[in-house]
Design a protein around this nucleic acid. Structure first.
Lengths: 235, 235
DNA sequence: TTTAAAATTCGTCAATAATCGATTAATTAT
DNA sequence: ATAATTAATCGATTATTGACGAATTTTAAA
């Protein structure tokens, strides 16, 4: 659970939608315990610019400016040991069994997604070009069944069901697909990470549900890295 | 739990921080199943404007523009019966016992907060001017004790501990303050909504914790209304 | 109380956003 | 295949942002 990104997004959204964006910016700068002067110096701009933003002189700052300011909050905090970020990290509970969850800022085609993780397509290959992926959830499958039965769907599906569910720690690849089958919501793609074997029931269920079943044997760290950076590469 | 506001904020934050803001805007417009033409007509602007934004011609749209676009998504969906919003509403579980939770876009002084809810100050009045309120959580106290023992603090404290916890459904005003006492996180202010009585232990605990204890007898609907709109009134 | 640091105000200017509308291209429906 | 609808491209104009810096005010520390 990448708390930093979630918090950054929360801040950005709150500023953008606020009736007083400048005051919201100031609130968060104070939350990070940064003075206007320090922020300005960090960004190599004049302190009066920060004051103008916070006072609302600029009614509609551009999103690039907002992004830069928020990134500076985090970078400055990190340079100081990350005290503020850690405060939030300790507040937010990682859902049990969910190793990582992330939304992609734009839709990625199923085909592109599977290629990026060097996935082997077991079923429903023709569906791939019709599927889009708006995020992923990396699940430790020992705990997954318990978590999937929860009624708080956002723990698994975040903000979109159009995602890839990636199950790792699989010995006999049947139970994840069964869990998906009984769940009311259906992902775009199911990925088994390094299964010892894939049960034929799993393939049948995926075909029944029209959910492509994919296998990848990348090392876990490599897989995480690719998943996290997929939407942020150049081009 | 106001899912609409949470989703709006999520969308705004994602667009603002995205490496391709235009593509993110397009993703969400498609999520709401709105064509560019319909969106443009709704906002009474030229369709080519929407296309220019989504293509990234405008690298850094102003936050007022982003806000307008997101508001239009929701309004158009609502005009169509709210199909998309309802999809999200049914996905997100309301924490048990939490009637309403909200972050304020900017800090509100303790004094101003208490005055707005016609609160009677029982303890720590001198602390009020030193306290700020960055949000509120309205709690049905029958369930609150169970919820407060959860390790997922964000269910009660959202994004800031600097908030007012408002307990309603109180008969004998002791258990909320005990729950706060044993909890590792402390709010700015504790409010009892229409208690039958306030136990002297509650007042003692509030003094010990330096948390102002407030009583309000506003009708619940009025109270909710004030709390929700406090940061959005003119001036 | 004084001093230093932090914050505010505001005139100014170059760059970019917000918007229009004409034209072209792509997609969808029949 | 054709027609209608939707989307994209791009030149042009006006309004606003992003930034500077000087002067003033406010706040915090000694």
């Amino acid at each position: 659970m990448n708390v930093k990104n979630i918090l950054a997004e929360k801040i950005a959204g709150e500023i953008t939608l606020s009736p007083k964006p400048g005051a919201t910016l100031k609130k968060w700068r104070n939350t990070f315990e940064i003075s206007q002067t320090e922020l300005a110096n960090y960004l190599k701009i004049s302190p009066s610019v920060i004051s103008d933003y916070e006072s609302g002189r600029r009614a509609s700052p551009g999103i690039k400016t907002i992004k830069r300011l928020i990134e500076a909050f985090f970078e400055i905090d990190e340079k100081r040991g990350g005290k503020i970020i850690n405060r939030y990290t300790s507040m937010i509970e990682s859902p049990k069994g969910v190793i990582e969850i992330m939304e992609y800022p734009y839709s990625i085609s199923g085909r592109e997604f599977v290629e990026s993780i060097h996935g082997e397509i077991l079923t429903c290959e023709d569906m791939l070009d019709r599927k889009t992926v708006k995020g992923f959830t990396l699940i430790d499958s020992i705990s997954a069944i318990k978590t999937l039965s929860s009624t708080d769907y956002t723990r698994i599906y975040g903000w979109s069901t159009e995602r890839a569910l990636i199950f790792t720690g699989i010995t006999y690849g049947r139970s994840p697909m069964i869990a998906v089958r009984v769940h009311p919501m259906k992902p775009s793609i199911v990925v088994y990470h390094k299964p010892s074997a894939v049960d034929s029931l799993a393939t049948k269920l995926s075909e029944y549900e029209n959910i492509p079943l994919i296998v990848t044997n990348l090392p876990l760290d490599d897989l995480k890295n690719i998943l996290e950076n997929l939407a942020y590469k150049e081009g």
